[in-house]
Computed example of a mutant assay.
Amino acid sequence: MSTEVFNLIRELNKDEEWPMELLLLADPSEKLVREYVSRGKCFIMKLDGINLGTYILIPTRPETVEIVNVAVNENYHGQGYGKQLVLHAIETAKREGYKTIEIGTGNSGVAQLALYQKCGFRMTSIDRDFFVRHYDELIFENGIQVIDMVRLSQDL
């Protein structure tokens, strides 16, 4: 992993505003985003005052943590920042003593599924109708309706 890029990522201070514009790229529900951000740790990737990306880690069970939102500024897609954010999350989870890290994405998230597997995650389950149960509006990505949550994890 690129140490130079890795050094651009830090935990958001408690007095700093959440990077809502980025968080809403990965999750269109501001209500849900506010709920889970308040339960976890938000990390930000910044360069020259620009928010390049973000992720959130939430403890879910003993020795288990979940990445619940990974987002990269749309102007910086395709430059490897998403991978750096995921790798940073994995390293952070290891450093904090977690034994398992989990992540989920919509059934239509082809690029996300590839990225997470390249970072060592394996598919573990499908939460059928997750996005139908938790979101009022229909969500489409890559021309596919987002219905199910594909769950992945890795042992640390």
Rank of each mutant, 00 (worst) to 15 (best):
Q79G: 00
T64F: 10
K46E: 06
G120D: 14
L52R: 08
A26F: 01
M45W: 09
T60A: 10
R61S: 06
N107K: 10
I103R: 09
D48Y: 03
M20K: 03
E102T: 15
I147M: 09
K99V: 12
E66P: 15
N75W: 03
I44L: 10
G49L: 08
L32P: 11
N107H: 08
W18R: 10
L152R: 12
Y135A: 04
D127L: 12
D136A: 06
L8M: 11
E66N: 13
D48N: 07
L24S: 04
V146W: 09
R133S: 00
V150S: 04
L85D: 08
I139S: 02
V86Y: 07
V68L: 03
E63A: 15
I58K: 14
L47V: 12
Y98M: 01
N107G: 02
C42H: 00
D127H: 13
M123T: 06
G80K: 05
A89G: 09
Y135P: 05
G109E: 14
N142Q: 08
S38Y: 01
V33F: 07
I144S: 00
D148S: 11
M123L: 05
S2K: 15
C42F: 01
N73D: 04
A26R: 12
H88G: 10
T60N: 13
V37P: 08
E74N: 08
L138A: 14
N7G: 12
R10K: 06
R128A: 02
L25Q: 15
I101W: 02
L25D: 11
E74R: 12
K99Q: 13
I144K: 05
E96A: 11
I90G: 05
I9V: 13
C42W: 03
L8I: 07
K41H: 07
E137M: 11
N75F: 07
K94E: 00
M149K: 14
G104P: 02
T124K: 08
S29M: 14
K46G: 03
T124H: 02
V5G: 13
L156H: 02
G143M: 09
V37L: 11
F130K: 04
H134G: 09
M123N: 06
G80T: 04
R10M: 03
M20V: 00
A26Y: 06
N7W: 08
E21Q: 07
D127S: 09
E63K: 14
C42R: 01
G82Q: 08
E4W: 03
K14I: 13
E102S: 14
H134Y: 09
W18Y: 15
D136V: 12
P28E: 02
T3A: 14
A111N: 15
L113H: 15
N107T: 05
G78M: 02
T100S: 04
E11Q: 15
K94H: 01
T54V: 09
Y76Q: 12
L57V: 11
I144F: 00
T105W: 05
E17G: 11
Q112R: 14
G78T: 06
G120C: 08
L85C: 07
L32Y: 13
T60L: 09
L25P: 11
G40C: 03
P59L: 05
E74M: 06
L113V: 13
V33T: 05
R34P: 01
F140E: 07
